[in-house]
Design a protein around this nucleic acid. Sequence first.
DNA 1: ATTTTAAATGAGTCAAGCTCATTCGTCACA
DNA 2: TGTGACGAATGAGCTTGACTCATTTAAAAT
Lengths: 232, 232
Amino acid sequence: MTRTQTRREKVEEREQTIISAAHDEFLKHGFAGAKMAAIAGRAGVAEGTVYLYFRSKDALLLAVVGQFYERLTARAAAGIRNIDGIYERLAFIARNHIESCLADWRILELMMAQYRRLEDYESGEPYRYNKTYVAVFDRVVRDAVSRDQIRDDIPLHVIRDLFFGALEYATRTHMLKRGKPRDVDLIVDTLMTILERGIGVAHYNGDEMKHVESVIDRLERVATRLENETIT
Amino acid sequence: MTRTQTRREKVEEREQTIISAAHDEFLKHGFAGAKMAAIAGRAGVAEGTVYLYFRSKDALLLAVVGQFYERLTARAAAGIRNIDGIYERLAFIARNHIESCLADWRILELMMAQYRRLEDYESGEPYRYNKTYVAVFDRVVRDAVSRDQIRDDIPLHVIRDLFFGALEYATRTHMLKRGKPRDVDLIVDTLMTILERGIGVAHYNGDEMKHVESVIDRLERVATRLENETIT
DNA sequence: ATTTTAAATGAGTCAAGCTCATTCGTCACA
DNA sequence: TGTGACGAATGAGCTTGACTCATTTAAAAT
């Protein structure tokens, strides 16, 4: 008989099974409503076994949330790699955020409820998860600032809070109103428009405006010429 | 002996005592950490008495949250009465929101945790509390839209989510970083600047803008024509 | 084959939300 | 002033569910 799994592999597989079971149970019943016995049942192990893998119900939730963040971060980081343009990148992050949150809404709620305890937040794991995720966003913004595409007089943390705060609330509204997937586009587009105007460097100020006008003049001449040529 | 209180008054006073006790206990220990026995102790009544006034621990939390919202709404509504100018009004609402949330942060967390259950959210009391609060904001924005101070092509709900989402996240960041009261000004100012640029009607004068747009229209028509000709 | 070590089990403990039979306080009326 | 009636208050006890630990089972080492 071939040994298909090492001991280590078996243990890790079981851990994953328990996390998945917990994910489903939390998703269905919420944190308070989820029962450790039910999670153990779903995972096909005894209740005591769960406690060999996770210290407590909280620790189990933390593992679930951790995996959520890992997916979220991985998708965001991979997605923007093939995208140029600051607002296109932000739009991708926004859409990824909304869609991921919609799928795992309950988990997110739980995370917030449990892990926003402030006193020791910065030392906790959720904080680190969040930090690596947010780093993806920060890099995009800092990059854009260095290219003079975003004003440098707005603190990064304010932009960040605005971005993710708006996304979270918009996601909730979307969920409450049972919006259609199409609506997500509207949300993302609108948000990008506001952001572009709000934090982008002004396109139409003073000298630049004159430049714009000269370009418009040239375009107009071109347009006229084209029209005439087409007619003849 | 003069009767200082009617029966009814006594009951209401006791109810208030219990709510206050719960508020303090929740604030100190969070929802899960708060014990009904401790709340009863703080209020100076027996544990069973609490259940004469509130069906459950959840109902008690709801009452606490309700009072928070009432204060929040009353202050916001009263504050903007003496203020003119859309951004000045929004700034007041923003500052009131941040300061109130900072004071009762824990309560807010709890509320979110408990009452974002989506299925029956719209029928619940917290939803109504939130709605009347948000109505103050909506009125300001709608008023500004009707005066052409805010673009009318941005859905109100997106502005609202952006506003309150940004505020909530900014408040949390402020709390985490243990910011100073002075920083709140910076947050509010920055947010207002972004909002003004992002949702305000364009500043550059109308004629120029119309001119630009008419040129764009022409270009578009020309482009379409060219495309068609290329095909044939 | 036997020992050793790690993993799994589930009956049992404990804490906390909630209930309810009982007691208490107050007021109306004789 | 005594007494009956009724709503308010009480806290011992019930229930539920997170967590523990003595015991059993499986795997690895010798």
